[in-house]
Write a protein that binds this DNA or RNA. Structure first.
Lengths: 154, 154
DNA sequence: ACAATCCCTACCGGAATGATCGGAAATCCC
DNA sequence: GGGATTTCCGATCATTCCGGTAGGGATTGT
């Protein structure tokens, strides 16, 4: 856990999303160089290796990375970084983008008692679409080629 | 807690945001009719009254509602619903919109060790701006005048 | 053989979530 | 003034989630 003690904040992305995204960007930077050991990524980004294993497992099950065992093994991206979006990564790590259960991506299963006089639903629907669009419009390739802090870096 | 058991989902809004937003929309609908008791809102929306008290306390401290004690008392919006945004409500209930500690609204205090070679920061910055813009562009008045479910209601 | 590496499962302490409860203070009506 | 109503305030509590740690098994290169 990097950074300050955090009070309540809205729309905070957990370390699963944060660390996992860092790993993916690092793999994107080294795309085409064969497999990269998780240890080297963990050390390079100063993150706990054992914890990363869990996150990478989710990424592998989602078909985003492939692992190779044994000495000299490691992980690599399955697809070209230009064809993997931040949305793909976030969904693999944290599940579908779903501000409320009634506004899930794809099919909505829930039958909400607040319908049909629900005044808040349109808000969550809009929010879901907005977030998904923002995440899906940014690729790993774009993130990987922007390694340096711009503007007033925090 | 309305709805189904929820597996892991990204960007999920807690009941603070959900219930609190419902209360605000209800108060917006009855704007200009004097104070509304929390009990009537709780019964109308089928929400736990005692829990709502806590949420409304946050809304009051944020200057969004005012309470009047005693028989016939209740709450009412301080400002016209057309001048209160969903963003105001969410921030009052769940804190600033902050995907990561390094991408807080306003001033960023954190000095992150990942800078300046952080490839993920631009993602969270974009996300923060996108979410804030979506929430700030929708007013309580708009939400209140759309009480009926549209499209395929969940 | 042996070291490196992925892979899998279980566990664990602390914090957040989603409430409930009891009571104090103000206000209205009779 | 008495009582009903309602906001306000703080404590408590059960459950779940978060952010890891620990240990071991399977596979591969040298």
């Amino acid at each position: 856990m990097i950074g300050n003690p955090l009070q309540a904040t809205a729309f905070h992305v957990s370390t699963r999303g944060e660390y996992g995204m860092r790993v993916m960007v690092e793999l994107a930077r080294r795309y085409g160089q064969g497999t990269i050991s998780l240890r080297s990524v963990a050390e390079g980004e100063a993150l706990p290796e054992a914890y990363l294993e869990q996150l990478v497992a989710s990424l592998r099950r989602a078909g985003l990375v492939s692992g190779k065992r044994g000495a000299g093994g490691g992980y690599q991206l399955v697809k070209d970084p230009a064809h993997v979006t931040a949305g793909d990564v976030v969904r693999a790590l944290e599940g579908p983008i779903e501000p409320q259960v009634c506004t899930a991506e794809g099919e909505s299963i829930v039958n909400c008692p607040h319908e049909p006089k629900c005044g808040t639903r349109q808000l969550w629907v809009k929010l879901q679409a907005t977030i998904a669009d923002a995440l899906d419009s940014l690729t790993l390739a774009e993130l990987a080629r922007w390694p340096v802090g711009h503007g007033k870096a925090g």
